[in-house]
């Protein structure tokens, strides 16, 4: 019965074809190092989910940001857990992306025909770091305030257009409510959507090329 239902559905939806063309491909005899991209993908999924839940209580205004986070930590059931996961997998995600990049570099997997996978990867790294930067400000405490002051100052060291970059990031000359809300917008919509799109391209390329085998002595 179950297999009949499955067949009926599959005839119309084409699960099997999808599976065959997307996942059922030959894999090199990889190591744990080959799982780092998937680990990053898992962490990204966790970030999206816990992030959505944090939004239930978080308020991106200078008056309420700090208090709303205090409330999440002490007032709401499991708030500490949701925030804790978001915090730690953010840290872990940056680490994973770096390790993943390192393994791709060490195994020389960025070579033909996977140059574009690497280039997309560079943007994945930058977007991930951007999420870290923008997320750090959101609690609106002393530490995040000054970290953002410093980070936007560093961005201002670019020759010529530096001060303009700083003002663009801050939404003015100083950190203000405008900074908080633009960091918020970047953190919850712009960067995650960018990242999701880039991940889509990244995975498409990986499916298209299959995973690289390890270099042999002749290489």
């Amino acid at each position: 019965m179950a297999s009949k239902i499955y067949q009926w559905l599959d005839e119309r939806l084409g699960f099997d074809d999808l599976y065959k063309s997307l996942l059922d491909r030959p894999e090199p005899h990889g190591t744990w190092w080959n799982t780092l991209g998937s680990a990053t993908l898992f962490l990204f999924t966790m970030q999206v989910l816990t992030g959505i839940f944090l939004l239930v209580y978080y308020t991106p205004s200078p008056d309420h940001a700090y208090d709303s986070i205090q409330y999440i930590m002490n007032g709401v059931a499991f708030g500490w857990l949701i925030r804790g996961i978001h915090h730690w997998s953010a840290t872990l995600m940056v680490l994973m992306v770096f390790l993943h990049m390192l393994r791709v570099f060490v195994t020389a997997s960025y070579k033909y025909p996977r140059e574009l996978t690497w280039v997309v990867g560079v943007f994945l790294l930058l977007t991930t770091l951007g999420l870290g930067l923008t997320g750090y400000l959101l609690p609106w405490n002393q530490r995040s305030y000054f970290a953002t002051t410093v980070a936007t100052e560093i961005a201002g060291l670019v020759p010529g257009i530096g001060p303009f970059i700083t003002r663009t990031m801050r939404g003015g000359t100083d950190l203000s409510a405008l900074t908080l809300s633009r960091f918020f917008a970047a953190h919850v919509w712009m960067l995650p959507l960018t990242l999701a799109g880039l991940i889509g391209v990244h995975l498409y390329l990986i499916i298209r090329h299959g995973e690289s085998d390890y270099p042999t002595e002749e290489d």
Binding site: M46, L49, F53, V56, G75, V76, A77, F78, G79, L81, I82, I85
Partner: peptide, 15 residues
């Protein structure tokens, strides 16, 4: 492990 706490988290003020 994630879903159950998440449900409690969302329903908390109502409870």
């Amino acid at each position: 492990g994630i879903t159950l706490p998440a449900v409690g988290y969302v329903l908390d003020p109502a409870i």
